[in-house]
Structure formats: structure tokens, C-alpha cells
């Protein structure tokens, strides 16, 4: 079954899974947006501008990092090739666009993030499926019975761990009692996802190792957790309006 799934969604078709997750995430987020004080129109416009900035920002950032290659072929600036893209630049651009739009429309920062939380949660599930299809984010070799055969070895199914963790996070947040304090939903989501990543990274074989074998991503996740806990405390001190 795993082989069939990987054949159907072999790269570049694994991107379909991400697009599906985006669509489903938006649908669910839109459904709950009004609960967080965000009107459907504002929500959809916010997503539209962020998405536009994501696409443009990813390409512009890639161009700036490889300016000499583009000088030789300026027409490639408008190439439809998705590999000419910088994900980090795209996320930063989408964030900036969201902030600008939110400020102009008077959207509350934390409430907006809460409204977007189902979207982010479903995206992380989709990301797990897309990793599984592409065979990326793969695990270390293992003799355990639930190991999957990938890249010529039996490996920890880290992509499946990722899917389970993301799915549990989504279920927990979707069905939890509504909390009137804004930001708590989003911060709980980030804490859970970061915590799960800190755990799962131990089974990954493709991470960057620093300082005698410590995984860089685990250190980053641990530091992020500290910031999330501080932010949670700050948010919990705020009075409910």
C-alpha cells in the first residue's frame, strides 16, 4: 500500500498533497474565522495577499541569492519552474504581507493567528504526507518491525510519525473548548508541533549534526519552546475582552 501511495504521488506529484492540505485547511479555518472576530471577506483577502506575497517573495528571494545566474538569463525571472524558489524568503514575504494587510484592516494580531491555526495544522499533516510520497525527511535505519523500506534500507517511518503527531495536534485543537484569550490556540499549536518535532528529529537521518552529534533542529526546537512558554504566560496575563 505504501509503495502504491508513493508511486501515485511520486515527485513532482507529491505537491498535489500539499495543495489539497492547503485547500482543506483554508476551508476549516474559514469556518472558524468568525469565532475569532475575523470576517470571512477579511479572512479570504488576507489569505489571497499572503499567498501572492509567498509566491512573489519566494521567487524574488531566490533571484537575489542567485543574481549572476539570472543576469545571464533574465527571462527565467518569470519561469514557471518551481525549483527557482526560496521557501524561507517566501514565508517572510507572506508574513510581512499578512502584517501589512492586518494593520490596514484593523485585524487583531493574535486573533488572526488563532483563526489561521486550523490552516497551519492541516498544512503540517499534508507536509507529512508529501514527505512520505517523496521519501524526504527520512528516518534512521532500524530493525524494528514497523520500519519501512526506503532508500535501500529499513528505516524509521519518520514521515508517518510526523503525520500522526500533526493529526493528533489538529484533533486536540479542533475539538478543544473555546478559549476567549486570543493567541492561546496558536501558541498551543506551535508548542505541540515544536515538541513533537523535538521528539521525532531523534529518529531522522537527514538532519544537520553539530557539537559531536547533537541535532541542530532539536536545539532550535528547544529554544523555540522557551519562547512559546514565555509568550503563553504573557498572553494568559491579558484580560479577556
Amino acid at each position: 500500500m505504501l509503495t502504491l501511495f508513493r508511486n501515485i504521488f511520486a515527485p513532482p506529484r507529491h505537491m498535489i498533497l500539499l495543495v489539497l492540505a492547503m485547500w482543506l485547511g483554508l476551508l476549516l479555518s474559514e469556518k472558524r474565522a468568525e469565532r475569532h472576530g475575523i470576517g470571512k471577506d477579511n479572512f479570504n483577502n488576507l489569505i489571497f495577499y499572503c499567498f501572492l506575497a509567498f509566491i512573489l517573495g519566494g521567487r524574488v528571494s531566490f533571484i537575489l541569492q542567485n543574481i549572476l545566474a539570472f543576469i545571464k538569463n533574465p527571462l527565467d525571472i518569470i519561469s514557471i519552474n518551481p525549483d527557482l524558489f526560496d521557501l524561507f524568503g517566501a514565508i517572510v514575504a507572506a508574513g510581512i504581507a499578512g502584517l501589512i494587510y492586518g494593520q490596514r484592516r484593523g485585524l487583531l494580531f493574535w486573533s488572526t493567528l488563532d483563526a489561521l491555526t486550523p490552516f497551519f495544522a492541516v498544512i503540517t499533516i499534508g507536509l507529512g504526507f508529501s514527505h512520505l510520497a517523496a521519501g524526504t525527511a527520512f528516518g534512521k535505519e532500524t530493525d524494528l518491525p514497523w520500519g519501512i523500506n526506503l532508500w535501500n534500507a529499513s528505516r524509521h517511518p519518520t514521515q508517518i510519525y510526523e503525520i500522526i503527531a500533526s493529526f493528533l495536534t489538529f484533533i486536540l485543537l479542533w475539538f478543544k473548548k473555546y478559549n476567549p484569550r486570543s493567541g492561546i490556540l496558536f501558541l498551543t499549536f506551535t508548542a505541540l508541533i515544536t515538541g513533537f518535532q523535538l521528539f521525532i528529529q531523534a529518529f531522522r537521518a537527514d538532519g544537520v549534526l553539530i557539537l559531536n552529534g547533537i541535532r541542530q533542529t532539536q536545539i532550535i526546537a528547544w529554544v523555540i519552546l522557551i519562547f512559546i512558554f514565555i509568550l503563553l504566560e504573557i498572553r494568559l496575563k491579558e484580560k479577556v475582552t
Partner: peptide, 9 residues
């Protein structure tokens, strides 16, 4: 197809 720019990078 890969573009020339992608190949260069």
C-alpha cells in the same frame, strides 16, 4: 524541463 538558471545555481 530544467531552466538554464536552475542548472547554473
Amino acid at each position: 524541463p530544467m531552466s538554464e538558471t536552475l542548472l547554473r545555481t
